[in-house]
Simulated assay, not measured.
Amino acid sequence: MDFEMLKEWFTMENIMKLINEYRSFGPLPGILLPMLEAFFPFLPLVLFVMANASAFGLWLGFLFSWMGACVGALLVFLFFRRFGQQKILQFLHRHPSVEKLMKWVEHHGFGPIFLLLCFPFTPSAVVNIVAGLSNVSIGQYLLAVVAGKMVMIFTISFVGYDLNALVTQPVRTIIVTFIIFLLWYVGKRIEVRLNKSVKREHSGG
């Protein structure tokens, strides 16, 4: 199975089948899927969260997705914090964009990490790696991850826990579509502002 076929396999139907097939393991599949996304960013976190909410209910689905996403993000952060100085990963430090973002995150701490992780359309894997390579404290990072992922995952869970309502209740569909668009738009605007701030501070320095 090549990469494209693997990506095509991840549909809502297949993920639901996977979760139901391993129901005997309790919440483990619901926690592991979002956790794996932190290591393999091409995996569809939005679909995992929606499937969890549909399979386990709104609150349990949200809890399992939130736990998995936070644990995965923390493991990626700790990996790059521990091994980021090794020769094999030194090229990351030399990348101009990574270097600028690292300095900006170190200077501002909690704020940018929290904001970026609130939105499902920003590259959270990059945020985790950069935070791990930077000197931001583990406490600041953990607080930002727990809070940011909570906002993002609850929003997606709310959309996914009753997918039938999206068809049978057109008003709900319009509201959900608007919320998704708003999250995407605000996330992109924040990303643009962060990039401008990084460039401005870098040129000023």
Rank of each mutant, 00 (worst) to 15 (best):
W184K: 14
W59T: 11
D2L: 07
A55R: 04
L45G: 03
P123I: 13
L143G: 15
V167G: 02
D162G: 10
R81M: 01
N195G: 10
L183D: 06
G109V: 09
T155W: 03
R172G: 01
K188N: 15
G204I: 12
P27Q: 02
E106M: 07
R172I: 01
M102H: 05
E191F: 13
A69E: 05
K199P: 00
E4L: 12
S197D: 15
H202E: 11
S203M: 10
L18F: 11
P170F: 03
F62Y: 04
T177M: 12
F10N: 11
L183W: 10
S97Y: 13
G72K: 00
L166R: 07
E191I: 01
L43Q: 07
F121Q: 10
I156S: 04
P44M: 11
T173A: 15
I15T: 07
G84Q: 12
N195K: 14
F154C: 04
S54P: 00
R189W: 10
T177N: 12
I88K: 15
M152P: 05
G109A: 09
K7I: 12
L194Q: 07
L194H: 02
F154V: 06
R23C: 02
I179E: 02
M67G: 03
G72C: 01
K17E: 09
P112S: 03
S134M: 08
L182H: 08
R200D: 13
W59K: 08
E106Y: 05
Y141R: 03
R81Y: 07
V71D: 05
S134E: 10
L163T: 10
E37I: 09
D162Q: 15
F25G: 03
E21I: 07
L163V: 13
V151P: 00
A125C: 06
R200P: 00
T11R: 12
N14V: 08
L45V: 04
F110A: 08
M150G: 13
L116R: 00
Q86F: 14
G109F: 08
E201A: 06
F80A: 08
F39Q: 06
K149P: 02
V126A: 04
C118Y: 03
E99N: 10
V159M: 09
W59P: 01
M50K: 04
P44G: 04
S97N: 12
S97Q: 14
M16F: 01
I15V: 13
A144Y: 10
V171K: 14
K7D: 09
K188Q: 13
G61C: 11
F42P: 10
L74D: 03
L43Y: 04
I179F: 12
Q169G: 06
G205T: 12
E21H: 11
F83K: 15
E201Y: 03
L63K: 03
G160K: 00
R82I: 08
N135C: 05
F154H: 01
T122D: 05
T173C: 07
K17N: 07
F80S: 05
E21S: 11
Q85K: 14
N128Q: 06
A51K: 00
N52P: 08
L142M: 13
L75K: 09
G26S: 10
L58C: 04
